[in-house]
Simulated assay, not measured.
Amino acid sequence: MKRILILMALLMAGALNSYSQSNANKWSEQRIWEWYNKQPWLCGFNYIPAYAINYTAMWDKTTYDPAAIDKELALAEKSGMNTLRAVLQYAVYADDPKYFLATLDNFMKLCDKHHIKFIPALFDDCSFGIKSDPVIGKQPEPLKGWYAWAWSPSPGHSMVTDTTTYPKLEKYVKAVISRFKNDDRVLMWDLYNEPTNGGLGNTTLPLLKKVIAWGREVNPSQPLTIGAFDMNKRLNDIITENSDVISFHEYGNRETLLKTIERYKKYNRPLINTEWMNRPFKSTIPEVLDVFYENKIGCTLWGLVNGKTQTELPWGHRPGDPEQKVWQHDLYHGDFKPYDESEITLLSKFITDSKSKEYSQTHQHSN
C-alpha cells in the first residue's frame, strides 16, 4: 500500500509540474485575435450521426458509415453552416490506432468536401445511461424514452480516476494532435468536453491538467480550448487560464446568454459558444442567434439530424415520463425533414448576411 501511495504521489507531482509549464505555449491575446479576425462568423453544430447511439458507434470499425455522414453533412452545407464539433473515442483508438487515425482523416475529408471545419473534442465525462466506461464493437439499441440511453464517455470514468492509465492517454492525445497539428481542416482542439460532469466531480482535474500539458507540448498550429459549462470555480480557473479561445456551453434564454457573455468578455479573448439550443429553455434560433451574429461570437448548436441518441427528449427523460411536445435539440428529423422550416430559413439568412458583412471583433492588443 505504501508503494502505491508513493507512486500516486509521484504521478500527481509530475502532473502538477507539467501543468505549471503548460502556459509556455499559450497563445498571446494578439495572436489569438489575429487568428480569429481571419475567420468567418463560425456558425455550426455538434455532430453525431443519426445511426450512432453514442460516439463509440460513430467511430468504431463495426459501424463507421462515411456514406451516411456524407449525406448528413451535405444537409448541413445547404444551410451554410461552416463548423462542426464532435467527440472522439479513446477506446476506438486504443483498439487500433492506425485505423482510428485513418478514420479521422476520412471524416475530415468529408467535412472539407462540404466546406465545414472540424472541432475535435478529445475526451468527454458525460454519462446519461447506466454505464460510464466505453466498450468497442456493436452498441446497444435505443431504449425508447431514455435520453442518450447508451452514451459512452471517453476515456471512461474508470480511466479518469486511475492515474496509472495516464501514460496510455498521453500517447493518444499526442498521437491524434500530432497527426493533424498543421491540418487546416481542424479549426481548433477542444481538449475535454465537460470535465467533472457525469458524477466525477473534481476527480477529473488531475487528468484535465495533464491533457492541457500534453496538448501544449505538441504545440499545434490550431488554438486549444476547453468549454466552461457550470459555476465550478476550480474548474473554470483552469479552463480560462489555459484556453487560447474562451469557449463555453450555454443553453439558457437570451437574458442568461447575455449575462454569460459578459462574464467571459473580461478575459479579452474571442468567444465561442460550443453548445447551445434547448427549445424548452428558449435557447432557440429566433431568440438568440442574432446575439452571436451581432457580436461575431462563434456558435455550434446541438445537433443536426435526430437519431438513436433521442436528443429530442429533455435531459433526464426516462421511459414513462410525460411526452414533451417541443423538441429539445436537433434541426432535422431522421428523414431530413426540418423540425421547423422557419428555423432553417433564419439560420441560413444570418449565415448569408455574415458573408457580406465586413465586421470583425477587434481588441486593443491585436491592432
Rank of each mutant, 00 (worst) to 15 (best):
P97W: 00
K131T: 15
Y36T: 09
S342L: 00
Y339A: 00
K78T: 11
R269V: 15
I53W: 09
D321G: 02
C126L: 14
E275I: 01
N273S: 00
L187S: 08
K308H: 09
V245P: 08
Q39Y: 11
S28R: 14
A91G: 08
E262F: 04
V326N: 00
Y64D: 02
G201E: 13
M81H: 02
K61N: 06
F118K: 01
S154F: 09
L257T: 04
W41Y: 06
T161R: 13
K61D: 08
P155C: 02
N193V: 07
N25M: 12
V135P: 05
M277E: 05
L10Q: 11
S356G: 15
N367I: 05
K38E: 10
P223Q: 12
L5G: 09
K61W: 03
W59S: 07
D340S: 01
K144T: 14
H114T: 04
P314A: 07
K296M: 08
E255V: 07
E287M: 03
K38W: 02
C111K: 03
F350H: 13
D96N: 10
S366R: 11
S356H: 12
K308Q: 06
A24S: 13
T56K: 04
N273M: 08
Y332E: 12
T196I: 07
P40H: 04
A86E: 10
Q364K: 14
F336A: 11
T240Q: 10
K71S: 03
S158N: 13
T284G: 00
C111I: 00
K233P: 09
I53S: 14
M108V: 06
V173M: 08
T260P: 00
T352R: 10
V305I: 06
K210C: 15
R216Y: 15
K71V: 02
Q310G: 05
D190T: 02
N197T: 04
I261E: 02
V218H: 10
E287F: 02
L84G: 05
E312A: 07
T83P: 05
T311S: 09
W59H: 04
N82Q: 12
K265D: 03
W151F: 14
L101F: 00
L16I: 11
T62E: 07
Y267N: 09
L104C: 08
A213K: 01
D244I: 14
A67F: 04
Y93Q: 13
D112Q: 14
N278I: 04
A76V: 03
T165L: 09
G252W: 00
Y332T: 07
E275P: 01
A52E: 03
L5A: 12
I6Q: 12
L101Q: 03
N232C: 06
K233F: 12
K181T: 13
E29I: 12
D330G: 03
Q89V: 06
S152Y: 05
I119V: 12
L289N: 02
L187K: 13
I48V: 13
G198N: 09
E194Y: 03
D237W: 09
T274I: 09
D353W: 05
W146D: 01
F128P: 06
K337I: 14
E217A: 11
F248N: 03
T240Y: 01
S178K: 06
E241D: 15
T345C: 08
G215L: 00
S354D: 02
L257K: 01
M277D: 13
A68T: 14
K181G: 03
F248D: 01
N232R: 11
D237M: 06
I69N: 01
L207Q: 08
D125F: 00
M188C: 15
N232S: 11
H333N: 15
